[in-house]
Design a protein around this nucleic acid. Sequence first.
RNA 1: GGCCUUAUCGUCUAUCGGUUAGGACAUUGCCUUUUCAAGGCAAGAAGCCGGGUUCGACUCCCGGUAAGGUCACCA
Length: 571
Amino acid sequence: MENNNNLPLNEQESLKELTPEQKSNRQLAERLFPEDLPSIESLLTRYPDRELPKGAMVTRIAPSPTGFMHIGGMYMALISCRLAHQTNGVYYLRIEDTDQKREVEGARKVVTDSLHKFGLDPDEGEGINGVEKGAYGPYRQSERKDIYKSFIKHLVEIGRAYPCFCSEEELEATHKKQEELNVKSGYYGVWAKYRNADPNIVEEMLNQGKPYIIRFKSLGSNENKIVYNDLLKGQIELPENDLDLVILKSDGLPTYHFAHVIDDHLMGTTHVLRGDEWLSSIPLHRELFKAFEFKCPEYAHIAPINKIDESGGKRKLSKRKDPEANISFFGENGYPEVAVVEYLMNLANSNFEDWRKANPDKLYTEFQLALKKLPDSAGPLFDRVKLNDIAKEKIAGMKAEDLYAKVLDWSSKYDPDFKEILEKDPEYWIKVFSIDRGGNKSRKDITMWSEVKEISAFFNKDRFIEPDWSSFTSKLNTDEIKSIISQYDLVFSLDDSSDKWMEKIKQIAVNFGFAPDTKTYKKNKESFRGHVGEVAQIIRFAITGRTQTPDLYQIMQVLGEEECRKRLTLI
RNA sequence: GGCCUUAUCGUCUAUCGGUUAGGACAUUGCCUUUUCAAGGCAAGAAGCCGGGUUCGACUCCCGGUAAGGUCACCA
């Protein structure tokens, strides 16, 4: 059995020899936490140091379950994952659900599913099946209440934490007063009402059942500086923390600051990668680590992904205003996940794209991500155009079969109509997707799966719409266009080789006063009305209703003779 | 307002005192081409401002300016 007050026996025996202050602290701790809590010693044994090879990094991603997976969170997860795995370390997931107000149903699943989708499943913590793995759990902060309480109780015992009964109004009032007096605002020094409160008063408040929170008793001074070395930003001088900040909320859950210190210590995190909004909390966190005599992890404070806002300023991608802030945006539009990942890799280490160019076939995980090369600037702007380019490149490199599978998968979720069309004749659609695909001259015309239906609409024989010739501009008149098409209808054969096919179009072009190729045309522009391209364009438009398509010869091969004839006689 | 961070082509960035300031995306042009793409080649495009230090500064220092962050019982 645990003893109740977490004290080694010999100290318990010498309880009587404590100073009055120590004694009262211990009584207070007992009064505040009468429940049976695990002892610090037992916790420290329960979470032993990790046995990892030298240089191994233990990283984590610690989202709060808001039902929304931010692209910035994914960026952080990617970097954390790469760094840990590159060093044979551990990358784990911890759910930071200490804010009950923000609790959203099914939010954890959004996190695990998103991570899974992008190939960033954690080594420890909750997986897609909802089951936790790993020996350093539980990995949900709401399930670690007793752990936090044990440590807070310890802090009270040693006089480094105390209850505060201030109401919201009271706090606001001090803040106002501080503003009037033009002094630093916050709960500190003389402004910390309950910092050195009379034990009797505290006891009375407690007896009255007054609501309270627990504050950390800071020993720092705003006048002093601490020197901190950020993995990204280098050496930074910050003022010491002197605020008695809340560590345990009235709902019995810890604040981020406290949970961070306890969890990252117990779980053996070596490198904390987090948003740079945390940078100014470093003095507090350092003091907290010191209070427990824990070793401080290394930190890298990473700037968020931004966008230009309405007024021209930079702002973090916003959950409410920017659809692309939500990682699900990319799935809904049908971006290949790997394109998003590689875009993010590029943001993380700008030399990634050079590596990618030199190693087009390697997995991105073979790239050595350098912590030192993470940008230490103010935060990049999200560049959809650049992402699009990467996506096009990725899709162009895919096999027709894989493309079919991906588009089918996407459609079954977001476009059942297209799914049905695709499933009707898989072989046909794979042939469609094979056009201009493979080799190094693949078309880069698809950015996301959602575009495929529209781009390949003319391949859908059942729904082919008669081309709208009024939108077609040509130096040829309607009669000539009609004549070209009917002439072509007479001569074309699907048995023709691509050369022969070309020959026939050239012949028609010549009949109508066009040069058979661009070279001839350019040499002697005056003698021709144009070159064969313009005639081919007419046939293209008749067959597809479009001016931009892949190779027309192959299109006709896939469409088949009957369909081609049908379309050539429509006009 | 205090404290902290950041500042190079339109965008992401390289450079760690001496470079014609490099690359990628985007843009434009040319070549190639049956169209459209792709591809190849090329062009335009940048050191916030002002002071220092130095033989020499994008790089180091100081000041200004601008942008971002932080100053919660949210993380």
